[in-house]
């Protein structure tokens, strides 16, 4: 169907093949169930890595096919993916720093907190 009237389409129109879209969806459901199953197995320190790996695989599928990145202009892809670079920079440096002074927070004796009832009010707003 997509192929049949493709010739009528302007050059910027790239409909994705339907079976591919449905296949991608099934793969996504499979991965969701997989991540749920693996989370029930004791995998100790790998659990987080595996969950993130599966999430990234799912994200890649969504990006590539649902979001048509597979057919998109290189510049758009580059720009979008560069955002992850900045996010990791943000997370990485902040983590590096807070990790270094975490101890000085942990040893600090924390004062009593204000009563719970008073807390939800905004201060003098």
């Amino acid at each position: 169907m997509a192929g049949s009237n493709h010739s009528d389409h302007p050059p910027f129109n790239h409909p994705a093949p339907l079976p591919l879209l449905i296949g991608v969806f099934l793969a996504l459901v499979f991965l969701t169930i997989l991540t749920l199953v693996t989370s029930n197995i004791e995998l100790a320190q790998f659990a987080f890595a595996i969950a993130m790996l599966i999430a990234t695989a799912k994200a890649a599928l969504v990006c590539a096919f649902f979001m048509h990145m597979f057919w998109d202009k290189g510049f758009n892809i580059l720009f979008f993916l560069s955002s992850t670079l900045f996010v990791s920079l943000f997370i990485g440096v902040t983590l590096l720093d807070t990790g270094a002074y975490k101890e000085s927070i942990d040893v600090f004796p924390r004062a009593a907190e204000p009563a719970k009832a008073a807390a939800p009010e905004s201060p003098a707003e």
Partner: peptide, 9 residues
């Protein structure tokens, strides 16, 4: 109160 290493970088 930022850590010295990060400060250096």
């Amino acid at each position: 109160g930022q850590s010295p290493v990060v400060t250096l970088i």
